[in-house]
């Protein structure tokens, strides 16, 4: 059987304090700065609607913005998704570096792959955006 629900995860380690990353990924309105293919987004309360480059509006509900834990969680509520939960965690590795982990769970499963593929590209854009080095 092919899984109906997909679970994916990507991570990047950067040579900077965790707050440098969190200032960007923990600010919902800054998504277009680091996510390729997001043209704009509107944040109203716990709702965020992004406009993709293909013209597709993607409504989301933000569930968690925890500045002490550095955790951001949201659900995409577009009808295409039966269910979706993405979690961004920024971990302090206490050696001058931090680890950003982007986890995606979704049904249908292929959407987990599509979102996580784009998330991976977004994570990979962070070093250039922040002017910091990636740590292998």
């Amino acid at each position: 059987m092919t899984a109906r629900r997909g679970s994916m995860r990507h991570a990047i380690r950067l040579a900077c304090p965790p707050d440098t990353v969190w200032d960007v990924v923990g600010a919902p309105e800054r998504l277009p700065e680091w996510w390729e293919g997001v043209e704009s987004c509107i944040v109203e309360g716990d709702e965020r609607t992004i406009q993709t480059r293909s013209g597709l509006p993607m409504p989301e509900r933000m569930l968690t913005i925890d500045h002490s834990l550095r955790r951001f969680q949201y659900r995409i509520t577009a009808p295409l998704f039966v269910e979706h939960l993405s979690t961004i965690d920024v971990h302090d590795l206490r050696d001058g570096t931090c680890l950003t982990v982007y986890s995606v769970d979704a049904e249908p499963a292929v959407l987990a792959l599509v979102i996580s593929g784009a998330a991976r590209a977004a994570l990979n854009h962070l070093p250039e955006l922040l002017g910091v080095d990636r740590v292998p």
Binding site: G37, V38, R53, S54, V114, A121
Partner: peptide
């Protein structure tokens, strides 16, 4: 490049 591309990240699609 992949066809599933709602963000039009891939140049072939863009």
């Amino acid at each position: 490049e992949p066809y599933f591309d709602p963000f039009l990240r891939f140049e072939e699609n863009l």
